[in-house]
């Protein structure tokens, strides 16, 4: 097990390297620099600025420098937010994004699995069709459509929840972003869960359990749930990527000061280091998350052996 985990971690190194390399060269090849403002700077000042940020060195040297920096966990200073390092910006934005993203994932897994199981148990009956139709709707309506509609209903019309922002204590500000972000994932997971649950319920060991006279609840919870959950578990990797991507629009719509907003602003301002930092950070997050999912998969699936 430990050996497997170690091997798997080693396997993540080329992935990370490709990620950093892609991001680095893509940003550097792009036209326009971080100091292109409307009024052009005097050449001496621009040269000084470039020298201060090592932008005057050959590309390959900058790349090497950046790699070394990242190895030390340092994403460098931000070009636009002059007084902040990228690490500080990530530290300020990430907790917010994590709150929303984490809650959404939790909600998606819990509700999605529950709906999926209910639909599977009532296969081809009205309940099943109802759940699956709602799920299909959830997949088909993008979250940037759902979010404004939620605002319109709960903030503008009913006035129950704040329309956006992240100030003040209250839990109200979390509700709508989390729901908007979670809905498509709830839909996906319930479809997955339904499919795998139906398959598992048809298998021989469930028939055996039924023959033993176990109660239906016990069969579902003790015997069927674990194997049926495996496809959902392996979907969590892509799901986390989808939630992270989705958070960019959700943060924009609800005016939430998270990492996604920094990314869009950074990209528009050509804040090289900030954008690189966010991409690499999110890439690492997805890699780590996939790693955890893999380990969990091994723990849940008795067919997986580590030798």
């Amino acid at each position: 097990m430990l050996q497997y985990a170690f091997k798997r971690l080693l396997g993540a190194i080329p992935t990370l390297l490709v990620l950093i390399t892609l991001a680095f060269f893509m940003i550097r090849i792009a036209p326009g620099g971080p100091f292109d403002t409307e009024k052009s700077l005097p050449p001496e000042i621009e040269a000084n600025l470039n020298a201060a940020y090592h932008l005057d060195e050959p590309l390959i040297q900058q790349y090497g420098r950046y790699l070394l920096q990242i190895l030390q966990g340092d994403f460098g200073p931000s070009f636009q937010y002059k007084d902040f390092t990228v690490n500080e910006l990530i530290a300020s934005g990430f907790p917010v994004s994590l709150t929303i993203g984490g809650l959404s994932m939790l909600l998606a897994v819990l509700l999605g699995s529950a709906f999926g199981i209910i639909a599977a148990l009532r296969q081809n009956r009205p309940t099943d069709y109802a759940v699956m139709t709602v799920a299909m709707t959830g997949i088909s309506i993008p979250n940037f459509v759902i979010a404004p509609l939620l605002i319109l209903l709960f903030a503008v019309t009913l006035g129950w929840l704040p329309a956006g922002g992240w100030d003040g204590d209250g839990l109200g500000k979390v509700v709508m972003p989390v729901i908007a972000l979670a809905l498509p994932q709830i839909a996906y997971i319930s479809r997955l869960m339904r499919g795998s649950m139906i398959e598992v319920l048809r298998s021989n060991f469930i028939r055996t359990a039924r023959a033993k006279g176990l109660s239906e609840t016990r069969i579902i919870l003790r015997h069927a749930l674990r194997p049926a959950f495996l496809p959902v578990l392996s979907y969590l990797g892509p799901a986390s990527a989808a939630v992270i991507t989705g958070s960019v629009v959700i943060e924009k719509i609800f005016g939430i000061p998270g990492l996604g907003r920094y990314f869009v602003q950074g990209a528009l301002n050509r804040d090289y280091t900030l954008v690189m930092g966010v991409v690499v950070f999110y890439g690492m997050l997805i890699i780590v998350f996939n790693f955890i999912v893999d380990l969990l998969y091994g723990a849940l699936d008795p067919k997986v052996r580590y030798d």
Binding site: M26, A30, V279
Partner: peptide
């Protein structure tokens, strides 16, 4: 393919759109 699969591609597309 595995390596590319782990990339946050949406972010790269956003970068492409912004830069080019």
């Amino acid at each position: 393919v595995d390596i590319l699969y782990a990339m946050p591609f949406m972010f790269f597309v956003i970068l492409l759109m912004v830069f080019f």
